[in-house]
């Protein structure tokens, strides 16, 4: 068993009286997809923000790639290889699809404090970008202005951006949100192929996707992890059923 790439140890975060993250300990190992589920208001977004560095936990530590990153800024975590997608699509709308992804590739290849030389003419960046676009099936749209893509295509672009960062781990915040059936099915296939290469921490509402992809599932309720285990165990867990799946399955 290789050591985990991402490890949360006893994270705690509260806003006034509201405890949003309550002693959360979980990890993500190479080769796996670890899904984080929970009803609305369970504190999933707060947790993602702490992992990516937007929020600082009140207590507990975060380790990424064997380093303590608890106090690191978002861009420093990204430099270590943590790539995230956003719950609300976050792309550069005025750039072409290719340039969006090339920018991500640029982040992982040498300094960007280069003031001369046309970035658009850097073949290495463009090749890396096209490779990522091919994986998500957006290669044909490379010259389209990103802002004019359909919603589903934007979600795919976001994944391509994350991939082009050559990440050590992907943190995906509801990648299926707002997607049509067909589109999510395609995305599930893509992610399933991907997870052997890049471990994925997946926050998702779409239960079908979670059970199709996840090797491990953790259930977050009121900021606490109430259960963690293989998908079948979670499905069978009575506490989870009453707290969460009960209302969803109905």
């Amino acid at each position: 068993m290789s050591s985990p790439i991402l490890r949360l140890a006893g994270l705690h975060k509260s806003f006034g009286a509201l405890v949003a993250t309550d002693n959360v300990t979980l990890d993500l190992s190479p080769g796996e997809c670890h899904a984080l589920i929970g009803p609305n208001g369970a504190g999933k977004t707060t947790l993602i923000h702490q992992i990516s560095g937007v929020l600082k936990p009140d207590a507990g530590r975060i380790f990424f790639a064997e380093q303590d990153v608890t106090d690191a800024a978002p861009h420093e975590r990204a430099q270590l290889g943590m790539a995230r997608s956003f719950q609300i699509t976050s792309i550069i709308p005025g750039f072409t699809v290719l340039e969006n992804v090339a920018l991500a590739a640029q982040a992982r290849s040498g300094s960007s404090f280069r003031f001369f030389g046309r970035a658009k003419a850097e073949t290495a960046l463009n090749d890396a970008a096209i490779q990522a676009l091919t994986i998500v099936g957006l290669e044909a749209r490379r010259d389209t202005v990103a802002g004019s893509l359909s919603h589903g295509e934007k979600r795919s672009l976001e994944l391509a951006i994350a991939l082009a960062m050559a990440p050590k781990a992907l943190i995906l915040d509801e990648p299926m949100a707002g997607m049509g059936r067909e589109e999510s099915a395609r995305l599930i296939t893509t992610l399933r192929e991907l997870k052997s290469r890049v471990p994925i921490l997946l926050v998702e509402h779409d239960m079908e996707a979670v059970f199709a992809l996840a090797d491990r599932v953790s259930v977050l309720v009121y900021g606490r992890v109430i259960a963690s285990g293989a998908p079948e165990e979670i499905r069978a867990d009575p506490e989870v059923r009453s707290a969460y799946l009960g209302e969803d399955a109905a």
Binding site: H75, E76, A78, F86, A107, I161
Partner: peptide, 9 residues
């Protein structure tokens, strides 16, 4: 925000 998340300060 996106640019920050890519690893740029």
């Amino acid at each position: 925000t996106r640019v920050e998340a890519l690893g740029f300060s």
